[in-house]
């Protein structure tokens, strides 16, 4: 029924995913939402690499290995992020990233 997806289709998908992720990062006010969007962009990148592994360098598994590492790193990143979110929440009782502007209130003067 469907034509076999070519590299272009896959890349388009990945680009869409990336854009959606970025959009989410810049519009979500909740930090966790932002984190989710970041994961989405990461996933688009992962997808990208897999696509290239499949279509460009299919005789090697380098891309897949790289992806595994990325997943691990992303997990670590998420852990640290969540920890920071928790401690941020303890101070502010909110996870609204737009509220994270106290530093500038204090230090941003134009003498």
């Amino acid at each position: 029924m469907f034509p076999t997806p070519t590299i272009t289709h896959w890349l388009t998908l990945s680009a869409l995913l990336f854009s959606i992720g970025l959009y989410g990062i810049f519009t979500r006010r909740n930090a966790v939402g932002v984190l989710l969007s970041i994961e989405m962009t990461l996933n688009s990148a992962i997808l990208n690499i897999l696509i290239f592994n499949r279509f460009v360098a299919s005789d090697e598994v380098d891309g897949q290995v790289l992806v595994l590492f990325i997943i691990a790193a992303a997990a670590a990143e998420a852990v640290v992020a969540l920890a920071i979110f928790v401690s941020f929440y303890r101070h502010r009782h909110t996870l609204d990233v737009t509220q994270a502007n106290h530093i500038c209130d204090q230090g941003n003067s134009t003498s």
């Binding site: 970025l22 990062i25 990233v97 500038c104 134009t110």
Partner: peptide, 21 residues
């Protein structure tokens, strides 16, 4: 100029991100 540019430092992390993109 310094003062004007300093205003860009809004503290809004998402604005920073948009600048980067």
């Amino acid at each position: 100029f310094g003062a004007r540019l300093n205003v860009l430092q809004t503290g809004q992390v998402q604005t920073y991100g948009i600048w980067m993109i």
